[in-house]
Design a protein around this nucleic acid. Structure first.
Lengths: 343, 343
DNA sequence: TTATGGAATCGTAACGTTACGATTTACTTC
DNA sequence: GAAGTAAATCGTAACGTTACGATTCCATAA
């Protein structure tokens, strides 16, 4: 009962009385084989259950058929940012449909982000990488560029290096959310950010300030804060907000977990979402509309983002002469409420 | 600016005046090289930035350094079962720490589950697979066994084939949940299942019926139903339950999404969780305790399950003579409530 | 001095694929 | 019928690694 390996080119060639070369060419629709031969070879390959051995092909061509996404995974057992799931799903499915396999590699929190990337590159087992969590002066694009290694970025940095990137229209979304709260008569609108100094927060802050100005509201630095990626941290931050002398009457939440934390904080303070404090959230899982009975949800389709990232990466690998793409993904605003019958 | 490839064995050999063979042996601590030589080789390899080419190694040894988990991913854009995220995280991190890469392959809903598996096997790009969503008479273990291909299963089937599997103690958990509801004076306890006919549902039903019997309660088939993996389906099912002539006063939810659906259904019916209907949920993300203000949560550590799956798979690959492991993972019961300050 | 044996190192082949140049076959044209 | 040409096919080499048998070297014993 030992491991049986699938048929290879030489077995097909022997079976048909052809050379390995001809079989190889026939299978990839090379123009130099006789149509009859091609048909015969392809029939035999199908019948014998031939699948190309990727190691052999990789050794010869340098292409492995693997893509790697570098994501920050949760190592401590606490609740992870669930928006990663649709992103992973989108990337995996798009890769699979294009004949690639997608591996996820995790950054290690204590580690320099560059060395994690280097580990992946040097293993030589991937054709291209997707990098995430871009920061303003991110060193990774330059590193990848210097190696001539195909990559795409999820999110923008301020580094002037040509590469494809897919980003979320964070500025627009924050601006729209703030404007909607102002239109709902909020006068003290708080903005929840996730981490300090990354590009996402910078853009969201821009949109927020722009909307405040348009609505004729003052900017109050004490209403802006970063609350990290956990429910507990969000709850702590919102609780502090609510204890201010002039607490907010509107809150732009950063994501699902930020919303959860905010809801817990409101419950503890005896306040009601949608009444004393109105909430808007940026959501990527569809979860928020089921827990939030308030103004609405900005739905950001990260499954689509994952698909676009993979497609851009494959383009960078297979057609390097094409110019890089820059896609800015907007959000769909969904009003919510208990009466909404949709999923 | 073309892609620079890292050093290979022959470059190191040339640089040191040794043969490729000796360098190869020195780097993997083979016993036949002189200690001085080994030290020299390893120093040179480190200095020249040598990393083994995985394609070359794979071609020679048949080992690729890749593991594949076959999961059902969401292709329709609807909210996916978020419990997959901690599972993926646990698997990915454990694989990474052991020097493997983990790819996720998705089953295609319309497709025969076997052909998806075959596609993965035949690609020859993976050393072992993790299969999930086991059903009672699952054909996949026999298929994998016949090929001599290393694999582990998440969940048990009733097929008598020796292989490692990691399972959740679904029977115990459902029994404990039902018992707790009965102890909280519930007399009509409903059981939410996910899909019909899989092993998980079978075990949960067993535990549920056992607990009912112990508590002296009658089994009512109309209180047991399967509600699929979406919030909407759960909501529809719970709504139907609540419209029964004798509606339940207790509900054992299947997972986070089942809970969400139940909460929406309760709100719509004007009922309060923890009052007219008491809830217990099986949770793997830590999310439930933030939305549920009721009896409690059975927390199932799927990050750990993912880690155990990968470790068992690596054992099956590297040490096939070892007997397979069967691990049954229990749950930790966490009482919840607004006054609970933990994350 | 010559066997003996063990330690250290080397050379060759092979894994399955593809690129490239060489070779055969069949058909047209003079 | 011979020469020329295009189409079809073939043989060889190479990617980087490891397994295996062969070989060298050196110290010790006969």
């Amino acid at each position: 009962m030992s491991r049986q390996s699938p048929a290879n080119l030489s077995q097909i060639a022997r079976h048909l009385g052809l050379s390995v070369t001809t079989v190889s060419r026939a299978l990839k629709n090379g123009p130099e084989v006789h149509p009859d031969t091609r048909a015969k070879v392809q029939a035999a390959a199908a019948e014998m259950g031939y699948v190309p051995n990727l190691a052999g092909r990789a050794l010869r061509t340098g292409r492995t058929g693997n893509l790697t996404a570098i994501l920050p995974l949760e190592t401590q057992g606490s609740l992870s940012d669930i928006a990663k799931l649709p992103l992973i799903e989108g990337m995996t499915l798009a890769a699979q449909q294009a004949g690639y396999a997608l591996s996820v590699a995790s950054t290690i929190p204590e580690e320099d982000p560059q060395s994690g990337l280097l580990r992946v590159l040097n293993s030589g087992s991937t054709d291209g990488v997707i990098i995430t969590r871009m920061v303003s002066d991110d060193p990774r694009p330059a590193l990848l560029r210097a190696r001539g290694f195909p990559f795409v970025a999820f999110g923008r940095s301020e580094v002037a290096i040509a590469h494809s990137c897919i980003d979320i229209a964070n500025e627009d979304i924050a601006q729209d959310a703030t404007t909607r709260l102002a239109a709902a008569s909020c006068r003290c609108i708080a903005l929840q950010l996730l981490v300090l100094d990354d590009h996402v927060s910078k853009m969201r802050l821009l949109g927020y300030r722009h909307a405040l100005k348009s609505a004729g509201l003052d900017f109050r630095p004490d209403l802006v804060g970063h609350s990290g990626y956990t429910i507990a941290a969000s709850e702590a931050w919102v609780s502090r907000l609510l204890a201010l002398p002039e607490p907010p009457d509107g809150l732009v939440c950063a994501n699902e977990l930020g919303l959860m934390g905010a809801l817990v904080a409101l419950r503890r303070a005896g306040l009601r979402a949608g009444r004393e404090v109105q909430l808007i959230v940026r959501d990527s899982t569809g979860l928020s509309r089921h827990v939030l009975d308030d103004i609405g949800v900005h739905f950001v389709d990260l499954t689509l983002a994952g698909r676009l990232l993979v497609e851009a990466l494959i383009a960078a690998i297979e057609r390097p002469e094409e110019p890089p793409v820059h896609t800015l993904l907007g959000a769909r605003f969904d009003p919510v409420g208990v009466s909404d019958p949709s999923d």
